[in-house]
């Protein structure tokens, strides 16, 4: 059974129905694998597998009132990724905070370097509060709507919109300062 994105009850049934769950995997696996590939490329396959095990085990906890299936799955993925980074930090206590914890910024920055992104843009992104940066990346990379990104991060949609616009303004202002040579 393929879920009807406009049918909330249908979405609910699909997530909870064990047989229909496999259809969810086929439908969302590529996007979710991409989420991990962008943030933890070396572990993407393992994390992707872990995601589906957890999502299946937790499927009864899905509440359609709190967002789409897609947002819920990305939320589970975010938890899997956070656990991965925390475990990595625990396994390697000497690792600098920026490379551990549950913020994948170091891996994201590696990707930006590899993509030859302008250093000043990387610096501006690095200066964003981690939640603002995460929301921005969920919109830019995962093509989530602000409402979906809010559900992934676990904050109200209105708060997410405020933070996203604040992030955009920071990026605009930073770029303008760079162009005028203002170091502040």
């Amino acid at each position: 059974m393929i879920e009807d994105p406009d049918d909330q009850e249908g979405r609910h049934r699909t997530v909870r129905d064990p047989v229909a769950f496999a259809a969810l995997v086929e439908r969302h696996a590529t996007d979710l694998h991409g989420y991990f590939a962008r943030r933890a490329p070396q572990a993407a396959d393992d994390l992707h597998a872990e995601l589906w095990l957890r999502a299946y085990a937790a499927r009864r906890g899905y509440d359609p009132e709190r967002g789409s299936v897609r947002a819920w799955l990305f939320g589970v993925a975010r938890n899997v990724l956070s656990a991965h980074w925390r475990q990595r930090a625990a396994d390697r206590p000497g690792l600098p905070r920026s490379a551990g914890g549950d913020d994948p910024w170091a891996a994201v920055d590696d990707r930006l370097v590899a993509a030859s992104m302008a250093p000043q843009l990387r610096a501006l992104l690095a200066q964003l509060p981690s939640t603002e940066r995460e929301l921005l990346l969920l919109v830019a990379w995962e093509q989530l709507s602000p409402t979906e990104a809010a559900a992934v991060v676990g904050i109200p949609a209105a708060t997410a919109r405020t933070r996203l616009h604040r992030a955009r303004n920071r990026m605009r202002d930073g770029a303008a300062r760079h162009m005028t040579g203002d170091p502040t």
Partner: peptide, 25 residues
């Protein structure tokens, strides 16, 4: 509107990844 800032296109492009092999799915 959110992605309306200088460099947003670069940011979006940096997120491009190849789809996983079919055997991963």
């Amino acid at each position: 509107e959110i992605l309306d800032f200088p460099g947003a296109d670069q940011l979006v492009a940096a997120g491009a990844v190849a789809p996983p092999p079919a055997d991963r799915i």
